[in-house]
């Protein structure tokens, strides 16, 4: 058992080292793109924890992303906070929102959960528009560059941005790995497989599902806060339904219930759009075709299929 776990740990640590190495060798364009991808991957990693491991499909995760984004952005704008306190406050907002929504939405199951989370996220989106006096609504606002600093680090510089994004992703990967390998993680998986049986074994599924929801929301909020701080923009489009569907797409493409699946899915989707839009103006057509084709070839997602066929030890 421990041999297998160590192998898994080596793979994940190895990947982080590879991403660090890429910092020194990637061509500039892929370097900036990967920085953004890593932040979004944190969002998808958190989504996977809830969907892939606990079996809860939320269509409202943009709400948590936006809570982090706006928590950081608004506090920095109104209190002149720098990135550190801004990030922490964004994270706190996301956790608070996820706890509240979790307590309400987890009364429902299955498709009802999906719809309820979607509707709460819609409420969040509309609230951003409604309080436009502070948020500037759909147009959003720019976070002052002077505030986007972490101690001596200028977070708007390309190289520092990459390293900060990598640090965030590494933390997310390691936390998630530790979590899914812990007894708690196994209970989450047990809930996914059979909630009733888990209950009969003496665990309170609600408590564990709420925990998964809050951690997942915290990941989303951390990604949102980091996105605003690193790229300098806060806007309502990030709270829209499209941004709730995106992590689902990333996760399903990369492989639900595989720790690294969301990262691979995020990378694949970014380059799919980037490359297809370079070849034709009708690129969404090919993005759509590629999605259909990928899912036909690998119905469990890219890494999910790899695990199924070649690497059953992959967590």
């Amino acid at each position: 058992m421990s041999g297998i776990f160590n192998k898994a740990l080596m793979v994940h640590l190895g990947l982080i080292v590879v991403l660090l190495a890429l910092h020194f060798i990637l061509p500039a364009y892929h370097h900036v793109s990967l920085a953004r991808i890593m932040v979004l991957a944190v969002y998808a990693l958190g989504f996977n924890l809830l969907f892939g491991y606990t079996g809860l499909l939320s269509l409202g995760h943009a709400l948590f992303f936006a809570a982090g984004l706006y928590g950081a952005g608004l506090s920095m704008q109104f209190f002149q906070w720098t990135a550190g306190p801004g990030f922490v406050f964004g994270l706190f907002c996301a956790i608070a929102v996820a706890t509240l929504i979790g307590m309400l939405a987890l009364r429902t199951v299955g498709v009802s959960f999906m719809i309820v989370t979607m509707m709460f996220a819609q409420v969040g989106y509309l609230l951003i528009l409604y309080y436009n006096e502070y948020t500037r609504g759909d147009e959003g606002f720019v976070i002052l560059r002077e505030l986007r600093v972490l101690g001596p680090l200028d977070l708007s510089a390309e190289d520092i941005r990459y390293l900060v994004a990598l640090a965030l992703l590494a933390a997310a990967i390691l936390i998630k790995l530790a979590l899914v390998r812990s007894p708690t993680g196994r209970i989450l998986i047990a809930i996914r497989e059979n909630e009733e049986r888990t209950r009969m074994l003496g665990y309170d599924p609600f408590r564990y599902k709420l925990m998964a929801m809050v951690i997942s929301g915290a990941f989303a909020g951390a990604a949102g806060a980091a996105y605003g701080i690193l790229f300098g923009y806060v806007g309502a489009s990030f709270a829209s339904i499209q941004y709730s569907i995106l992590p689902l797409l990333y996760v399903l493409m990369g492989g639900a219930g595989v720790v690294l699946g969301p990262l691979l899915g995020t990378i694949a989707m970014f380059y799919l759009i980037d490359i297809a839009s370079g070849m034709t103006s009708a690129y969404l057509f090919f993005v759509g075709l590629a999605l259909v084709f990928l899912i036909l070839v690998a119905p469990k997602g890219l890494l999910g299929t790899v695990r199924e066929r070649w690497a059953p030890w992959l967590p």
Partner: peptide, 12 residues
């Protein structure tokens, strides 16, 4: 995923 793909195809 497949119907999201279909959505893109039809929209484009």
């Amino acid at each position: 995923v497949a119907t999201i793909g279909l959505l893109y195809i039809i929209q484009q």
